[in-house]
């Protein structure tokens, strides 16, 4: 495909970056995330992950039914260190 298509706006990852990752064999979502940085910016993949995952599956010749999201990293939304430092220790959280 001609032109520069941005697939992850936070980290400026392009469609050709994904093609390059697939060509090197990094076609699973977790691999492509690490190779291109997709989904590691402020939205943490909430905008781009599904589209990128489907594109990778198609590009690598795998059925979309095999696509799995990458591991979700807390916090759900960016939160200030000062806010986290405020409350007392709530003990064991979700494992």
């Amino acid at each position: 495909m001609a032109g520069k298509v941005i697939v992850c706006r936070c980290e400026d990852v392009t469609q050709s970056d994904l093609d390059h990752a697939v060509a090197l064999g990094y076609s699973h979502l977790e691999e492509a995330k690490r190779y291109t940085g997709l989904g590691t910016g402020p939205c943490q993949g909430k905008e781009c992950m599904v589209a990128c995952a489907l594109y990778l599956a198609l590009a690598a010749g795998r059925p979309p039914s095999e696509v799995r999201p990458f591991t979700s990293r807390p916090p759900v939304a960016a939160i200030a260190l000062g806010t986290l430092a405020g409350p007392d220790d709530p003990g064991e959280g979700g494992g």
Binding site: T40, G41, A78, I79, A80
Partner: peptide, 9 residues
């Protein structure tokens, strides 16, 4: 204190 956490692992 004002800097935001993006992700933990």
């Amino acid at each position: 204190a004002g800097v935001k956490v993006l992700r933990q692992w």
